[in-house]
Design a protein around this nucleic acid. Structure first.
Length: 605
DNA sequence: GCCGTCACG
DNA sequence: ACGTACGTGACGGCA
């Protein structure tokens, strides 16, 4: 039977028809005489990763109760080229708004088919995220359930024992896909109305929505990785690990699985008789801080730490990265997740390229593997002390504003304040302490937390904190105010109006409440930094496009952007990037961006 | 599927 | 008496 598009039910309440019947089939787009005001769509494809996955079909919905499914590479498809061309025209029409759930995925799949989606995007996943960034699951299933009390048919059930969606019968595929497209359309009404009442419209349309296009480009371009070098490093790590392994067995007097915390506990705390310093839910901790402390008493803990470091680098990076090089592009394509963090940051997965090692000799070795394409260099641009600058701005603290206005080394200045001495007399050790205090301030400092971080007595830590607040009343006031605001509203906001509910702020449990208070303090800072770099990303992306430059943004690591830049564009790109990052927001302190470039990421940093 | 551990900002 | 720094993702072990 000829099947072009399938007329479909309102979530299964009407019967479906094929459009192959006479008279000539109406296309889902053209049989309407009215102009298309908006369109909900959903791509069915193979695989989670939209770069390696491929399209199976497209579901479309223009109005409640009617949705269509157009098979593209369905096993049972009869491939009608006209359908594809009509769809391309509509999806690329800048004037037609597009509705969907997780549009970044659909846009990326469509790009592989030569369709470049344009126009205003109503992404219901992003809307759900902005309405409640604490929500752990923004899947269509979960959002549909929460806002429409609608239980969608699970994908796994439709798939059954089949390997790919392309093997599902057209009838079933239609039911499933059309339901998704229609659900997104219905959710759009509710969620975007609520965005308006919550004051989140501006954040959506001017930040998260444009960012979809930026992130799709970044994911599509990917990063070049030196695979051969990774294989060399793997062998090197194998050798080093073997040596440490036998050393450990020698010291322990037996061989065991070093990666098993259970077995390790037996060796450390029973056989050798070292003092357990900390407990976990399941036993005695063998974490880094504990082993570091124990290494003063015995030689084994240090060897365990060395082993763990190398093992981590090998399994998580050196051996994992080559497997994620895409066969088609020869590059590595991460996913930038826009709806994961509670603060507004992005996250990165499969592979996570936001936690690539940087410290130590192995950090350098691994970063050297991230390379620029021929004729290009990598440019790294990172915000200097961005969270403390944001704290200066939102707290209005005079001391902090003064320090950043004069571009004084902030940690040295804090040290001078803490120890009541002139800047010139600050030692390395004092600066280290001050640096930790400054970090602690941003996290919502507590005497216990600071004492743990500095390995000092809580009383001593409390004294530092007291001294810090004496010099920075503005910061102290900000913290008190943030907690007050959270108590009154039940949520806190970033500078750009991003909200995070803090439901535990009035908890009667002291621990829970204090944790909530730290969130109330930290979230506006971390979240504003996230807002800031998102603005910079959008502006840089736009300007690169306007000027037809071939410089490509490839990674975001919270306060850093990484670009792949053709050599002739180095100067112009450097200026453009620095300007847009430093001027993304106008704060009461200047923003400062450090830049570097080279053939690999280690050099660029 | 959870836990402990550890890589990053 | 207890347990705390903020935000992530990936790995191996183990039930």
């Amino acid at each position: 039977m000829e099947q072009f598009s399938l007329f479909k039910s309102s979530k299964g309440t009407e019967t479906e028809q094929t459009v192959s019947e006479t008279p000539p089939a109406p296309s889902p787009i053209t049989h309407h005489s009215s102009p298309i005001t908006e369109l909900s769509f959903d791509i069915e494809a193979t695989g989670r990763n939209p770069i390696s996955g491929s399209i199976v079909g497209i579901a479309l919905c223009r109005e409640k109760g009617r949705a269509y499914y157009v098979p593209i590479r369905h096993k049972h498809d009869t491939n009608i080229p006209e359908a594809f061309d009509i769809l391309k025209g509509v999806l690329e029409d800048e004037s037609i708004p597009k509705i969907g759930h997780n549009l970044k995925y659909d846009i990326l799949i469509l790009r592989q088919e030569g369709i470049h989606v344009k126009g205003r995007l109503y992404d219901t996943m992003l809307a759900s995220y902005l309405l409640n960034p604490n929500k752990p699951d923004h899947s269509l299933e979960d959002v549909g359930l929460e806002y429409l009390f609608y239980k969608k048919r699970p994908f796994t059930e439709v798939l059954g024992k089949r390997h790919s969606f392309s093997e599902v019968s057209i009838d079933e595929a239609t039911q499933y896909a059309a339901e998704d497209a229609e659900l997104a359309m219905e959710l759009k009404e509710i969620l975007f109305e609520r965005l308006k009442t919550e004051g989140l419209e501006d954040l959506y349309f001017n930040m998260e929505m444009p960012l979809i296009y930026v992130l799709t480009d970044m994911e599509e371009i990917g990063v070049r990785i030196n695979k051969g070098r990774l294989e060399e490093l793997s062998k090197e790590l194998d050798r080093d690990l073997g040596i440490i392994e036998s050393k450990i067995y020698n010291i322990a007097g037996e061989s065991f699985n070093i990666n098993s915390p259970q077995q390790l506990q037996k060796i450390l705390f029973e056989k050798i008789g070292l003092k357990p310093l900390k407990k976990t839910k399941t036993g005695y901790s063998t974490g880094m801080d504990v082993l570091e402390e124990l290494s003063k008493t015995h030689e084994l803990p240090m060897e365990i730490l060395n082993y763990r470091t190398l093992y981590k680098l090998k399994t998580t990076y050196v051996d994992a990265l080559p497997k994620l090089i895409d066969k088609k592009t020869g590059r590595t394509h991460t996913s930038f997740n826009q709806t994961v963090t509670a603060t507004g940051r992005l996250s990165s997965s499969e592979p996570n390229l936001q936690n690539i090692p940087i410290r130590g000799e192995w950090g350098t070795k691994i970063r050297e593997v991230f390379i620029a394409d021929e004729g290009c260099v990598l440019i790294s641009a990172d915000y200097s002390q961005v969270e403390l600058r944001i704290l200066a701005h939102i707290s209005g603290d005079e001391g902090l504003i003064d320090a950043f206005s004069k571009d004084i080394d902030i940690h040295t200045r804090t040290a001078a304040e803490l120890f009541n001495i002139p800047k010139e007399s600050v030692t390395e050790e004092m600066r280290r302490i001050a640096k930790t205090v400054n970090f602690g301030v941003v996290y919502g400092i507590s005497p216990f937390g600071l004492s743990e971080a500095l390995n000092i007595a809580p009383k001593e830590a409390a004294a530092y904190i007291e001294q810090y607040f004496k010099k920075h009343e503005g910061v102290k006031n900000y913290m008190d105010d943030a907690i007050k605001v959270a108590r009154e509203n039940g949520y806190v906001k970033t500078l750009m109006g991003r909200k995070r509910p803090i439901p535990e702020i009035n908890s009667h449990n002291t621990n829970i409440r204090q944790q909530a208070e730290r969130l109330a303090i930290n979230t506006p800072i971390q979240g504003t930094a996230a807002d800031l770099i998102k603005i910079a990303m959008i502006n840089i992306w736009k300007r690169l496009k306007e000027r037809n430059l071939e410089t490509r943004m490839i990674l975001q690591i919270h306060d850093e952007l990484l670009f792949e830049v053709p050599e002739p564009e180095i100067e112009i790109a450097k200026n453009l990037i620095k300007y847009e990052m430093e001027n993304a927001l106008s704060l009461s302190v200047p923003l400062k961006v450090d830049m570097g470039w080279g053939k690999n990421w280690a050099e660029a940093h």
